[in-house]
């Protein structure tokens, strides 16, 4: 589904190479996790895939179901089925959460040549999904992420994911800033979306999120490359011994 080949990326502003040849293949129905120390390029990978400004791809490719992601605008990537759950969801004063979500849902439908969702249908669907994530009516009415706690922001990301029904979900450190209960809630939300046709790329520092969202494949990233790939046991190894052993082993 998501196919990344030999991806090289540098910062536009400075001559600094961040990704130095990433190869990754995420199949439909699978959950892949990327772990790695700070500064290894995990978040850069998520931003480059979703089309954020400030990065320059110097080599390699990234495709989603054959669509060349790197050639698309961020909104086109979203319409193609890519979703990034932000590590730091952005606060947008003056834009109601509900308006935002409806605009997004309908923009994607329009881009795919589908009919827009009526206000009544939208309301029905969002109420049900919000309830599952314990998001109350007040949070839907407030401006996007304004005055939300860390946990509320992350749940709001998952709500967006549930509403947009993407094919490929990238979760960038969704566990950061969450307490155990909030993490469980978020993980349940993610697990509910696990289907045969949908792929997941879960980026995290810690193994604990992976207790709740069980990965099929775990990758270790370091210095802009995937240096090791294995099963869920690899995450436990990191948890027990830290990254040092793995890094040493590879070098």
């Amino acid at each position: 589904m998501l196919s990344i080949k030999n991806l090289h990326v540098k910062l536009e502003e400075e001559d600094k190479q961040i990704l130095k040849g990433v190869d990754l293949e995420v199949e439909a129905g699978k959950v892949h996790a990327i772990m790695g120390p700070n500064g290894s390029g995990k978040s850069t990978l998520s931003y480059v895939l979703s089309g954020k400004d400030g990065y320059e791809v110097t080599d390699g490719s990234a495709t989603l179901e054959g669509n060349d992601l790197l050639d698309l605008e961020p909104e086109e990537r979203a319409a193609a089925g890519l979703f990034l759950a932000f590590q730091y969801p952005v606060e947008i004063p003056g834009v109601g959460n509900m308006t935002f979500l409806r605009t997004a849902v309908n923009a994607q439908r329009k881009a795919r040549g589908e009919e827009e969702m009526s206000a009544a249908d939208f309301l029905k669907v969002i109420r049900a999904k919000a309830k599952d994530l314990k998001i109350d009516a007040d949070m839907l009415k407030r401006p996007v992420n304004m005055g939300f706690s860390g946990g509320e922001k992350k749940r709001n990301e998952i709500l967006q994911m549930a509403m947009l029904e993407p094919k490929m979900c990238i979760l960038d450190e969704t566990d950061s800033g969450l307490d155990v209960d909030a993490m469980k809630l978020v993980a349940e939300g993610v697990n509910a979306l696990r289907t045969e046709g949908r792929g997941f790329l879960v980026i995290t520092h810690y193994q604990r999120l992976l207790d709740h969202i069980k990965p099929d494949v775990v990758h270790i990233m370091s210095d802009g490359r995937i240096i090791k790939t294995g099963g869920p046991e690899l995450a436990l190894e990191v948890e027990n011994n830290g990254y040092a052993d793995i890094l040493a082993e590879v070098v």
């Binding site: 961020p74 947008i92 935002f100 605009t103 997004a104 923009a107 996007v144 947009l164």
Partner: peptide, 10 residues
């Protein structure tokens, strides 16, 4: 960017 990443045009 946040809005665009959700599919809203520029």
């Amino acid at each position: 960017f946040y809005l665009r990443a959700r599919g809203v045009s520029h």
